[in-house]
Amino acid sequence: MQKQPEYWRWTESRWTNPDIDWKGKIITSGVDVGSVSSQAVILADGELYAYSNMRTGSDSPDSAMKAMNWAMEDTGLTLNDLSYTVGTGYGRVNVPFSQRAITEIACHARGGNYMYGPTVRTILDMGGQDCKAIHCDERGKVTNFLMNDKCAAGTGRGMEVFADLLGVSINDVGDLSFDIDKEPQPVSSTCVVYAKTEATGLLREGWPKNKVLAAYCSAMAHRIMTLLERIGVEEDFAITGGISKNKGVVKRLEKEVGIKIMETSKYDPQIAGALGAALFAKALYDKGKK
């Protein structure tokens, strides 16, 4: 039997800063073990040196280890070179080589502040299985937050399910959702299970794939809007996490909120949590030395 292509599989990434030589510098790191993806970020004297972003496996300590090994690949670094490591995300207590665990709320605010600059006031993290809306000050300190992790509606995992159902690579979902004649009504339920049922019905009625994708992206944007309404949106507004790479949701959300969403930074937007953790690691290392 021919193997079914894995439409949900998003692109993993890794990066090393070619301008930095880590030798002789203080190395701190952050590991974000999320429900769907895991990231490791390495800082040299507080500057972003390397990162990796990959899929989380069934075993949190193992995923943390793999992400860190991939980030260290070809850099000559070993675990012994890490002065301080902070774990974050769902699996934060399961990072074997970390000294401390910090919530993803605090880490995303701090990481978003580094990636998007001190003018960011609202950070929306659209993760694999939850969604967090965070307000922060100019130093990346949380001033207000809200998290929805009770249900996976409006999250990355939901998008993966849809990519699979429609046989569209997850990287193309955003573009294809705009390749339509007229914006359709959003699917009435954002619950992944019900939305999938509804989508199957729409396909049977003869809707083209792109239109169904548009209806789902739009429902997801609407769902996130209702969550944002509780804490409000202040400029500048940035999105992190996997869904921030999906223009189909981002553009529709931008339209609903009525505030421009900041352009994604040159780094992978999924690393914000791990980056924040690494920055906390640096701060805690410095604090411990005093």
Partner: peptide, 16 residues
């Protein structure tokens, strides 16, 4: 910091 603990579900918003 305003810390909102809770959730939103089909029946409404429940936050402390």
């Amino acid at each position: 910091m305003k810390a909102n603990y809770g959730y939103k579900d089909g029946s409404g918003d429940y936050f402390i």
